Structures are given as C-alpha cells and as structure tokens.
Simulated scan of single mutants.
Amino acid sequence: MHGHFAWNELMTDDVEKAKAFYAAALGWSFESFPMENSQYWVAKAGDAPVAGLMAIEDVAPGAPPHWFAYVEVDDIDARVAAAEREGGTVLRAPFDVPGVGRIAILRDPTGAAMGWMTSAAPAA
C-alpha cells in the first residue's frame, strides 16, 4: 500500500550470528533467496516472510550493522523524480529485482537513507 512501510532488512557483519539470535529470540526461520552478487536470507515467522538479512560488506562496506526500511510507493520512477525535486538525493537509481519489484535507495533532505519500492504484481 502506497506510503506504508513494506520491508525491513538487517545489514550485518555476522549473518550467521544474527540468524541464530533471531531464530532463538523470535522463532524466525531463514530461507536463502538468490541474488546476483551476494547471499540474501529471507526471515520467516511461520510461513510469512517478515524481513531480509545480508552481509553489510556486500552493500555498504564500512557501515555499522543496522536495520534498513523500505516504503511501498505506487510508481517508483515518478516518486524518485518527485523526491529529487523536493531536495532528496538518489543513492541508487531505480533497479529491478525479479519477482520482488523495482527499488531505489534515497536520502531525504535531513540525511536519512531509506529504500522505496514498487512491488511486483503477485504471480497468477
């Protein structure tokens, strides 16, 4: 739904330690999700996907471990253009993730980074 938080990812320097922690603390299980240049894990609560985990060195070398949020938008390309007009900075231009949707990484005028995404239509 447009304007709502849609996904969260943990970027960490110790994926296995994080997986063990969240499995024990929250009961999450993990499923590998193929990515072109990195190993991505989908955290699940029961059968429902709830978050992603990845090695921080694959996406933001030198950054500390952190959770990263994504907001659903109705039209990623139009919304990114609007964000730029309003003083936002595009850190990664819109790109496609097969079966997931189209994603961009932005920084708002205060300096906070966030992902925006237009999810792919569900498979018929």
Rank of each mutant, 00 (worst) to 15 (best):
A104P: 00
V100F: 13
E57F: 10
I103A: 01
V90Y: 04
E72C: 10
P65V: 10
D77L: 13
A82E: 15
A78V: 11
D96V: 14
P64C: 00
R92G: 00
V59W: 07
H66T: 12
I103F: 03
Y70R: 03
F95H: 09
F95W: 13
I103G: 02
A69R: 01
R102P: 09
Y70M: 03
L91G: 05
D75T: 04
V100Q: 05
I56A: 06
A60M: 14
D75N: 13
A81R: 14
R79T: 15
G101S: 08
D58N: 08
E57V: 13
V100L: 00
I105F: 01
E86L: 15
A60V: 13
A83R: 08
V100R: 02
P61A: 15
A93F: 10
V71P: 03
D77T: 14
G101P: 07
D75W: 09
V73Y: 06
R92H: 02
E86N: 10
V73D: 07
V90F: 02
P64D: 08
W67Q: 00
V100S: 04
V73L: 01
A81H: 11
A82F: 08
R85I: 10
A63R: 06
E72F: 09
A93K: 12
A81L: 11
G87R: 05
P65Y: 02
P94A: 11
R92L: 07
D74L: 13
G88W: 05
I56T: 04
R102M: 12
V73M: 08
